[in-house]
Design a protein around this nucleic acid. Structure first.
Lengths: 220, 220
DNA sequence: ATAATTTTTTAGGTGAATCTAAATTTATAT
DNA sequence: ATATAAATTTAGATTCACCTAAAAAATTAT
């Protein structure tokens, strides 16, 4: 059994190692968790002794298969709750993260099973992230950062990397939602900003930073 | 701000003092919380310093107005979640308590407001207990223990004192639900058991213990 | 290749929430 | 009214999840 805090560390390790294939460093974790490195070292030892990560002094940590399963359980709960909040309780997509951070630790397999069917077994959450199934299977869709796509590319906004309220509110304001069709008109070389067309009708400029946080699935 | 554990103590104090008007004793609390008396003494001091209870050494504790408000907030959350679990997720009424014990500590006023309206502002939970409103107002209905009612009494089952799965399953089995009409046919003097008619058609015998845990509102 | 810098770990400490064992206060019984 | 019993509190420990300061290891820069 993992404590609430242990679950949060494990989730962070999962997300951080998901990106790069290399081990997750103590400092990266400390940063992510807003804790000091010494505290992270303590926790790493505990997680290692519980077999959810492998750890070699001074070499960072890697998540184990057992740890991956545990992390995916928490992520499944988080994403189902976010879906519930948006679909059933009419939260805006920028209001759900904090609450879901709490709800994801509720321990009741029956609850999650029932919530899942109440929601109609959704495949993705309101941010476009895939929801792992009961057995931790997660279907990653190949998606590219908008910033990496070529001029002329057509795609559908699939998910966002930055889930902060500020960013999500900005997206809402300029009319970008998950599922929106996006066409790249032109990329400015000097600053990486780009002009795009949303849903075949709205023309907007977005910064490089914004385009890096938009993940699209390319479409013909 | 109260910790999860402090909230649970406060809730217990509220429930225990609700019954008798006198102070809640250390041992009663220790019993209720499944902790040792020494631990309770520690916690009592902390709660007292936070102003949610008043405490005099060796004399037990009384909940303060501030404490009452805090307790009612938790109770409101608990009962709304129980309602959600039964009405929306199709839980049985005997499966909800443990999960609601976890959910009641989620801290998000917006969530509770939205949940409340999603449920249609229910007045009572699935066990017949009144749900306090946003401002902690709670309308207690005058109800009597079935065991205390006279032969010939007609009433509607309003709530149950014992919310344990075992008891609730027993009630389901013999056909008793919240809202069921109950008529007392006869009370056996020697053991306090009684014969009752449920919904004007089913005749059953129930023990004194069971009748003590059934609260009815008398009806003409 | 060694020195300087950065990263990580160790050592020791704190508050929350528990415990056991012992001391103290209150209640009860003769 | 005093002795015994019961309830309560105090004292001292433990585990979790954090901290700071200092030491050790790894990385980098000259």
């Amino acid at each position: 059994m993992l404590s609430l805090v242990e679950e949060n560390y494990l989730k962070a390790i999962y997300h951080l190692s998901d990106a790069g294939k290399s081990a997750v460093t103590t400092n990266a974790l400390a940063d992510n968790m807003n804790n000091k490195a010494a505290s992270v070292t303590d926790m790493i030892k505990r997680l290692s002794s519980k077999g959810v990560i492998s750890y070699e002094k001074y070499r960072g940590v890697n998540i184990s298969e057992k740890g991956r399963r545990a992390a995916l359980k928490v992520i499944r709960k988080h994403r189902l709750w976010e879906t519930f909040l948006v679909e059933k309780l009419n939260f805006n997509w920028d209001e759900v993260h904090e609450v879901a951070e709490q709800l994801e630790h509720i321990d009741s397999p029956l609850l999650i099973e029932k919530l899942d069917s109440f929601l109609g077994h959704p495949k993705v959450d309101p941010h476009g992230h895939p929801i792992p199934d009961k057995d931790g299977r997660i279907q990653e869709v190949k998606q590219v950062q908008l910033s990496e796509a070529k001029e002329g590319t057509n795609g559908v906004l699939h998910s966002v990397n930055d889930g902060s309220p500020k960013f999500l509110q900005y997206l809402s304001k300029i009319g970008i939602r998950i599922g929106a069709r996006i066409e790249i008109v032109e990329r400015m070389e000097f600053d990486g900003s780009m002009e795009i067309i949303i849903d075949d009708n709205e023309r907007v400029f977005i910064s490089r930073q914004a385009s890096e946080n938009l993940l699209i699935r390319e479409m013909p």
